[in-house]
Amino acid sequence: MMERIPILKLGDTLIVSIQGDLEDQGVLALQEDLADKVVMTGARGVIIDISAVEIVDSYIGRMLATIADILRMLDADTVVVGMRPAVAITLVELGLSLGGVRTALDLEKGVALLDHVRSTPR
């Protein structure tokens, strides 16, 4: 049994909120769903809210980085928002710093960051 994570659209931004404990296939499905939806809607930004996620291990961390890479190739910027302090501390100690992934403290700051990224010429 695998639940798919709902993807919301707000203007040209897609928003997903990961709730609870994710199975590995759930993250993989999210990757495919987001890639499809970005192409289908032409969204320019994607916000992934992980404020309800209690642990991010190396697999999930790597998948977040992979999702950001894939969406970048599809012309969308990704921001991961809401990481818990304990998760950040654990990830760095584990050896993953998610260097290629933009982060913001919450959804509001994530939206502001996307606005800023898009108003700055690349």
Binding site: D24, E54, I55, V56, D57, S58, Y59, R84, P85, A86, V87, I89, T90, E93, L94
Partner: peptide, 17 residues
């Protein structure tokens, strides 16, 4: 503590995988 819970659960996740 919350941080130690997070660390040991993350380690368990890695080793189980």
């Amino acid at each position: 503590s919350l941080i130690d819970q997070t660390k040991v659960v993350t380690a368990a996740s890695e080793l189980a995988r």
